[in-house]
Amino acid sequence: MKKLKCLLVDDEAPAIRLLESYVKKVPFIELIGSTTNPIEALAVIEKEELDVIFLDIQMPTITGIQLSKIIKDKIQVIFTTAYPQFALESYELNAVDYLLKPFDFERFYSAVLKVKPKEIQNIQTDTNEFIFVKTDGKNNFIKVYTKDIIYIESLKNYVSIHLENDEIITYNTLKHFQNELSKKKFIKIHKSYIVALPHILKTDSLTVYLSNSKNLPIGDTYKKDFFETINKFMV
């Protein structure tokens, strides 16, 4: 899989060195550059195709918040700061995560797993597509937008639909959902799992890593079809 291209921006050199050491430990991240000057960062952003920027907030000339507003949705942002009071504003800017200094490698890695590669971001999905799922009771149904489904899990006679902040269990089969969702960017990776392609962060030969930090196994029977599908989005 193509590596995530990142830029580090922090006005303190020790913070830059720590982030660089963390980036080196993650095999799927490529460090494009680092700078203590937010103005220089803008030049790099214009020149390079970046996936994510690790961005300090309290900096001279331009704050991290201001820089984030300038780049808008061009690049995913992970804020790195010693000031917790900016957390709410950062999420209003749709930041991927907010790392409060000092943070360890484990916390850094959990943030990185939330970053979506461009080939996954660019998958087109209709935000209005939905299905109705039967719940308890003869005529009880709940609307589920397909863009919110991260993965679907077989539980013998039931199916669990995993959303970002919710889980819906319904009496049905995985095969039924496979037939219904096969043309909507979903793929079966295991006898017990169907995953949504837009929510895949990365994969190796054995495992799929999802946007909700869940890791799912890839069954031998499904590997060929799965990786053929993934290869269609390679750039």
Rank of each mutant, 00 (worst) to 15 (best):
Y151C: 15
K116G: 01
L67M: 13
F105N: 02
N122P: 09
L42P: 10
I71F: 08
L99P: 09
F54D: 02
I149F: 12
K114N: 12
P102Y: 06
T146M: 09
V112R: 04
D51Q: 06
S160V: 05
K138S: 15
K156P: 05
Y145D: 07
K114D: 14
N94V: 00
Q76S: 13
L155E: 14
Y98D: 08
E92G: 04
V115E: 03
E48A: 12
D56N: 08
P60N: 12
S90E: 02
Q121H: 07
E92M: 08
K138C: 11
N122R: 13
H162F: 13
E89S: 02
E153K: 15
H162Y: 15
T127I: 02
E40K: 09
I131Q: 10
F141K: 04
Q76L: 12
N157F: 06
I53C: 05
E49G: 02
L100Y: 09
K114S: 12
K47T: 14
N122I: 02
A95N: 03
T81H: 05
L42R: 04
S90Q: 02
D51H: 03
I123S: 08
F54P: 11
D126T: 02
V144N: 10
T81W: 07
F108T: 04
Y98L: 06
N128T: 11
E40S: 06
Q124I: 14
Q85W: 07
K134E: 12
I65M: 13
E119M: 12
E106C: 00
V144H: 12
D104P: 00
L88V: 15
P117E: 04
V44E: 13
K118T: 14
Y91P: 05
L155G: 06
E46V: 00
G137M: 10
F108C: 09
T127G: 00
G64T: 08
F79P: 06
E92V: 00
T125D: 10
L93P: 07
T61W: 07
Q85C: 07
K116Y: 03
N139S: 11
A87E: 14
I120K: 01
R107I: 12
K118M: 13
Q76D: 14
D51W: 01
A95R: 01
V77T: 09
E46C: 01
E48Y: 09
V159P: 08
T80L: 10
N139L: 11
V96A: 10
D136W: 07
L42V: 03
Y91I: 03
K114I: 11
N157A: 06
T125V: 13
N139K: 11
R107P: 03
A87W: 07
F86L: 04
F54R: 00
I131M: 14
H162A: 05
I152A: 12
K134L: 05
N128R: 08
Q124V: 14
K156W: 03
Q66N: 12
L50C: 01
A87C: 14
Y151G: 11
D136P: 02
V133M: 00
N139F: 09
T135D: 04
V52E: 10
A95E: 05
R107A: 09
Q66S: 09
A43Q: 14
I120Y: 02
T135I: 15
D148L: 08
F132R: 06
E92S: 06
T61K: 14
S154M: 06
Q124G: 01
F54C: 02
N157D: 15
Y83L: 14
K69R: 11
V44N: 11
K138M: 15
D51T: 04
V133Q: 06
N94G: 10
E92Y: 02
I70D: 01
E40T: 03
